[in-house]
């Protein structure tokens, strides 16, 4: 039995079809379904989605490992301290569910890959350092605004909360204004 070049190509295309990342959903369809998740969250809890609170809960738990009194009395940690059980946080469990949901979706779509997302003009190491700084800055912004893309923009926006809509405009204004300066990281 001889393998022709055409055979090899067909085989490669076949195996590719099994492993190549599948296309993402149409953004409007994904948005409608995300909106229904948000609606269900409102219908169940009356509070909508949020993500930053989970990080606040972990920070309070870490502070409590060193000094429970400090965690219980610090103005910010106290909000997440929950009488010594900061990890029993609704938002933290929401994000645990989100991790599993994203993993299932990623596996089904062949999109799970250990990699670093970056443009071709920065190194992996640079990108990891910049991502850490970006996370730090975003956390500070979310703490000042009392919410992030989930807690303010989506959750507040859908009930026409004026402050949330103002927050969303500020986020996009800032990111569009800075995009030119960090273009080497992405393009």
């Amino acid at each position: 039995m001889t393998h022709t070049l055409a055979d090899t190509r067909v085989a490669a295309a076949r195996s590719n079809a099994h492993t190549a990342p599948r296309a993402y959903w149409n953004p409007y369809l994904a948005g409608v379904l995300l909106g229904l998740v948000l609606l269900a969250t409102y219908a169940v809890t009356g509070r909508g989605l949020g993500a930053t609170g989970a990080f606040g809960a972990i920070a309070a738990w870490l502070a409590g490992l060193f000094s429970p009194e400090h965690a219980a009395t610090n103005l910010v940690h106290a909000k997440y301290w929950n009488d010594g059980l900061p990890l029993e946080s609704w938002t933290l469990f929401l994000l645990i569910g989100a991790f599993v949901g994203a993993l299932v979706s990623g596996v089904a779509g062949h999109r799970v890959k250990v990699t670093v997302e970056r443009g071709p003009r920065v190194t992996d190491g640079q990108r990891l350092a910049i991502a850490f700084i970006g996370g730090f800055v975003a956390a500070y912004g979310a703490k000042i605004a009392k919410g992030c893309t989930s807690g303010q923009a989506l959750t507040g926006g859908s009930i026409l909360n004026v402050g949330s809509l103002v927050f969303m405009l500020a986020v996009f204004a800032s990111a569009y204004g800075l995009a030119y300066f960090v273009r080497k990281e992405w393009l």
């Binding site: 989605l49 993500a51 930053t52 989970a54 990080f55 994000l95 989100a98 991790f99 994203a102 997302e117 910049i130 991502a131 850490f132 700084i133 970006g134 996370g135 730090f136 800055v137 975003a138 956390a139 500070y140 912004g141 979310a142 703490k143 000042i144 605004a145 009392k146 992030c148 893309t149 989930s150 303010q152 402050g163 949330s164 103002v166 927050f167 969303m168 405009l169 500020a170 986020v171 996009f172 204004a173 800032s174 990111a175 204004g177 800075l178 995009a179 960090v182 990281e185 992405w186």
Partner: peptide, 23 residues
């Protein structure tokens, strides 16, 4: 909300994610 939004937007474009999407 304006100050927080401006700071958050900077973190978003520099870091590439937001608190939910990084998960």
């Amino acid at each position: 909300q304006v100050i927080g939004g401006l700071v958050f937007g900077a973190g978003f474009i520099v870091g590439g994610y937001c608190p939910g999407t990084c998960v």
